[in-house]
Amino acid sequence: MGDDAGTTRMTVDAHGEPWPDPKLEALPVELVPIARLTVAGSPRVGGADPEHIRVLAGTSTVFPPILVHRPTMRVIDGAHRVHAALLRDERQIEVRYFDGSEDDAFVLSVRLNVTHGLPLSRADRNSAAEKILHAHPDWSDRAVAAISGLSDKTVASIRRRTSAEFPQLSHRVGRDGRVRPNNAAAGRRRAAAYVQHRPHARPREIAEAAGISVTTARDVRGRVREGLHPVPAGRAGAGTAERAADAGPEGGADGALFSSLRRLRSDPSFRHHETGRMLLRLLDTSMLIAVEQDRLVDGVPVHGTDAVKQVATQYAQAWQRFADQLENRGRMFG
């Protein structure tokens, strides 16, 4: 393994990379018995390379300090040097310690061994990327690719192949350290909710609150004020309910619901006053019950079933009272 450096904790560096800054050389060096170290958990799938160990052992060069995870005494960087030292009948080796978490230690190990020393094989890098995605599913494909020495397309393929094993998150942490939604529709919906509570907020304030661009925030604010849905029809990444409502009736009860909602959204009588726009937003949100009911039910943990059922029942009763009042009002003016 190689001889690069990093800090004793995971940070976001000046370029927004989610790995330690190269400052290990400033850490103190200790002489540690090799018997206290472990080389398990290396990103090298096939273990250490015997030929590389023999080459290192046959040199007269003094090895630079290895990097060790202090809490577990696992070698992060320098396993080949440890094996070579044993071949030389050495019983101690110089060590610098890393004090971060085990996940951080693995990320650092991958990062260091991609950039120097005996390079990780393609299989090693693929396996490492998968493990990093398990530990940090919110990291973007580009960030994981930069760490593992792969292309972002390869990381995206690994993520898709193993997607059932990863939590389905609504955001990713990019190489610049910023948190972004997985699709634009999620950010637009957050912005719309913010505008609803703070209708006079400036676009920059909305953008910062929702994690979207100022231009998008300005567009969402305008759409909300006009009573339009914050996600334009046909927008890539729109949620299921938005796509269905914009597409028109598909047949059956849901199709009739979509058609009715679409007509309401195009009615100026609703769009041109605040209460009407509020009602349209509530109806849009409730559309999810029609189109995502099975998924929503599956997402309720067993221990929360009764509580969610109680809240859903209360909401259903509130909607029923609302419908009854509308019916009575219709009779009065009918």
Score class of each variant (00 low, 15 high):
42 S>W: 11
253 A>P: 00
91 R>I: 08
101 S>I: 06
27 L>S: 07
200 H>I: 09
188 R>Y: 12
230 P>N: 00
61 T>F: 06
247 A>S: 08
43 P>V: 08
75 V>R: 04
33 P>N: 03
255 G>K: 05
130 E>I: 15
24 L>E: 04
323 A>N: 03
310 Q>V: 12
29 V>P: 02
165 E>G: 07
86 L>N: 01
141 D>T: 12
124 D>Y: 06
273 H>D: 13
126 N>E: 13
133 L>Q: 11
100 G>T: 03
287 M>P: 06
220 V>G: 10
320 Q>A: 12
269 S>T: 10
260 S>T: 10
128 A>N: 04
168 Q>T: 08
145 A>N: 06
141 D>W: 05
131 K>T: 15
239 G>I: 06
183 N>A: 09
73 M>P: 01
138 D>K: 03
64 P>A: 06
190 R>A: 12
210 A>V: 11
183 N>Y: 07
43 P>C: 11
3 D>H: 07
155 V>L: 10
235 R>D: 15
291 V>M: 00
150 L>N: 07
25 E>F: 01
127 S>C: 08
150 L>D: 06
116 H>I: 00
332 M>I: 14
59 T>C: 07
200 H>N: 12
227 G>K: 06
232 P>F: 01
193 A>C: 14
33 P>L: 02
204 R>N: 15
229 H>S: 13
73 M>N: 12
143 A>W: 11
139 W>Q: 06
279 L>F: 15
280 L>G: 14
233 A>S: 15
171 H>P: 02
282 L>C: 13
288 L>E: 13
24 L>Y: 01
96 R>A: 00
88 R>Y: 00
127 S>Y: 09
173 V>M: 10
116 H>S: 10
2 G>I: 04
62 V>R: 03
181 P>M: 02
2 G>E: 03
200 H>D: 14
40 A>H: 10
79 A>F: 00
173 V>W: 12
97 Y>D: 00
115 T>H: 13
267 D>P: 08
322 F>D: 01
3 D>L: 05
89 D>G: 01
210 A>L: 08
284 D>Q: 06
221 R>Y: 01
127 S>A: 13
13 D>K: 05
159 R>I: 14
213 S>M: 14
265 R>H: 09
108 L>A: 08
286 S>P: 00
295 R>K: 11
308 V>W: 07
35 A>K: 15
330 G>M: 07
138 D>E: 11
261 L>T: 05
67 L>T: 04
140 S>L: 03
320 Q>P: 00
137 P>D: 03
141 D>E: 13
266 S>I: 07
268 P>N: 05
174 G>Q: 03
17 E>T: 04
7 T>M: 09
325 Q>P: 01
181 P>D: 13
218 R>F: 07
72 T>L: 09
333 F>I: 09
100 G>C: 04
263 R>I: 07
145 A>E: 05
134 H>S: 08
20 P>L: 02
252 G>S: 07
55 V>P: 00
175 R>K: 05
276 G>S: 04
332 M>R: 14
243 R>L: 04
